[in-house]
């Protein structure tokens, strides 16, 4: 049952960071706003054990979640963006005859991005900083996350690798503050995309998250593990349907990991750019 829970943490951490990466991380523009609403469905009945070996849950055991979030990006200046994310999750864990469901607002994130363009404005170096505040307490399983405040620091480099293409090389560091054993999380990702035509983009992203903690002891209750890693691949297709609205569908899959859940997830998000 609990084997899937560690993935919840991983899932949300990754998702919050990956939303908005469907295109190069250019500044949104002074006084412009982009609002992204996300719906995610995730299902898992396997996990990677401490040795990275893919293991099946007991028959009939699974983890399922639906996740909604609202992300707002606003251009405070020509090169500074404010980002805020309000996530809501509903998750169900089935273990034998026992089924648990919990829903609520999870980790609220507020951050700033500072963009530094190249002379030709085609490449950007971006510094990111954010804080995460949990809007829940871990007093009922299945847990929605670490229930810990967090600070995030990161940097990325957006560039054009080929005609009509875009790419982002990013590194993020997250420190969970409320517990002495963290964890510290390091995430590296490479996103490559191409405008298939003027309105349609296809994006692939490879990300690896390493969660490290002095608490390295393996616990069969994976939610207590703070030491895990996982690599995911996600592919998305977005299509602009009018001047302001771009819906995007994204699928992701865990390629490998340790103490992490395996599953296939689907994101559907709609970005509205204002004005």
């Amino acid at each position: 049952m609990q084997l899937s829970k560690s993935y919840i943490i991983f899932l949300f951490t990754v998702m919050v960071l990956s939303i908005g990466e469907a295109r190069a991380d250019y500044p949104i523009g002074k006084r412009r706003t982009a609002i992204t609403g996300t719906f995610n469905y995730f299902y898992s009945d396997k996990f990677f054990d401490a040795n990275g070996k893919l293991t099946n849950n007991f028959p009939g055991d699974y983890f399922q979640s639906t996740f909604y979030s609202l992300n707002v990006m606003h251009g405070l200046g020509r090169r500074i963006d404010l980002t805020a994310t309000l996530p809501f999750a509903k998750q169900t864990l089935v273990n034998g005859n026992n089924s648990e469901t919990r829903a609520g607002i999870t980790d609220i994130n507020i951050g700033l991005s500072f963009h530094f363009p190249s002379v030709d404005y085609k490449r950007y170096f971006t510094l990111k900083t954010a804080v995460g505040v949990p809007a829940y307490q871990n007093n009922q399983t299945p847990y929605l996350g670490f229930a810990s405040k967090a600070v995030m620091l990161g940097a990325n480099y957006s560039f054009t690798p080929y005609k009509n293409g875009y790419a982002i090389l990013e590194f993020m560091y997250t420190r969970f503050l409320d517990s002495q054993d963290g964890p510290n999380q390091y995430r590296g990702s490479l996103t490559i995309g191409k405008m298939y035509n003027k309105h349609t983009s296809v994006t692939a992203s490879l990300a690896h998250l390493v969660s490290q903690s002095v608490n390295t002891a393996f616990n069969p209750n994976l939610q207590l593990n703070k030491n895990f890693n996982a690599a995911t691949l996600n592919v998305s297709v977005g299509r602009k349907i009018n001047r302001s609205i771009t819906p995007t569908i994204q699928a992701y899959y865990t390629l490998l990991g340790r103490n992490a859940g395996l599953g296939l997830g689907v994101n559907f998000f709609v970005t509205v750019r204002l004005p």
Partner: peptide, 18 residues
Amino acid sequence: VYHNSFIGIWFAEQAVKR
């Protein structure tokens, strides 16, 4: 040429304000 790119950014900024 790079100023042309900036023109695009500037235009978008100015088009925000009604």
